[in-house]
């Protein structure tokens, strides 16, 4: 047992490859198996909507706050959605306090892109009085425990959150009438990590993310169409492998979708 630990410490990549050759991962998962996922909605009473998602050890929580603002001159009928991914120094020893890290910034941008491309929330729905008042939704995502696969967890969060977060009320007269916002779509992301020995694994942990030489994230919408594919460099992929991943991705998305429905309805 001790020698296995030593081998892992000295040559972590070799250690992983031995496992991957046997179609299994050191934590006992199959290559295309995700970690246990739990979804919890509305944990915070001060937010208009909130959710907490755990994938294995990775914990992310998100609160959405709706406020009133004036729209931009060019798009007077459009509401504004501002996502932000925050990686506080609380969540990992690798992060120091200070301005957001590059990783947090790319994550924020990716989530913003997915929100736009999936048309999750129709911006026209957020309009109160054209060119005067619109809603702005601040979607703040805070990572509490960084153990790989941040994006997947972050995206999961969006959904249950926004389903309960709209309040109508005009600036002068205040109706406290609450209507929930219609969601046009359900984007769900799955991240894969590729090791060069042709092994592609789903839902990598932090350790696996650090060792692998390329990861990519596929986001599927309600109709199982791809609404975002994010692959920042890394090893090359051929079409065959990608199709294969897509198949696994669809399976994963279905299980996640039922999880979320359970969480929202309970």
């Amino acid at each position: 047992m001790e020698s296995a630990d030593q081998f892992k410490a000295v040559q972590p990549l070799q250690y992983y490859k031995r496992f991957l050759d046997q179609n299994i991962r050191p934590d006992g998962r199959r290559l295309q198996e995700a970690r246990t996922t739990t979804v919890n909605v509305n944990f915070c009473t001060h937010a208009n909507g909130s959710a907490m998602v755990r994938i294995g050890n990775t914990t992310v929580c998100c609160g959405v706050k709706a406020e009133i603002t004036t729209p931009s001159v060019t798009q007077p009928n459009d509401g504004i959605i501002v996502p932000n991914v925050d990686l506080p120094p609380l969540c990992s020893s690798a992060i120091q306090s200070g301005p957001p890290t590059d990783y947090a910034q790319t994550s924020t941008k990716l989530i913003d892109d997915i929100l736009v491309s999936s048309n999750l929330i129709e911006k026209k729905d957020l309009c109160i009085v054209p060119s005067k008042y619109v809603w702005v939704l601040y979607c703040d995502i805070v990572c509490l425990d960084l153990d790989g696969n941040l994006i997947d967890a972050s995206l999961l969060i969006k959904l249950p959150v926004v389903s309960v977060n709209e309040k109508t009320g005009k600036l002068e007269y205040d109706h406290a009438k609450t209507t929930s916002l219609t969601l046009r779509d359900e984007p769900i992301a799955t991240t894969f990590a590729a090791f060069d020995s042709d092994a592609i694994i789903m839902d990598p942990t932090l350790e696996e993310e650090n060792l692998c030489n390329g990861s990519f994230t596929i986001t599927l919408n309600k109709e199982d169409d791809i609404c975002s594919l994010f692959k920042p460099g890394g090893t090359e992929l051929d079409n065959q492998k990608l199709q294969n991943c897509l198949k696994h991705c669809k399976r994963r998305v279905n299980s996640v979708r039922s999880l979320m429905q359970n969480a929202v309805s309970s």
Partner: peptide, 17 residues
Amino acid sequence: TKRLPVPETSICPSTLI
């Protein structure tokens, strides 16, 4: 500059009620 731009001012609806 490290975060997405936000509207300069916005009002929380609960302050109005």
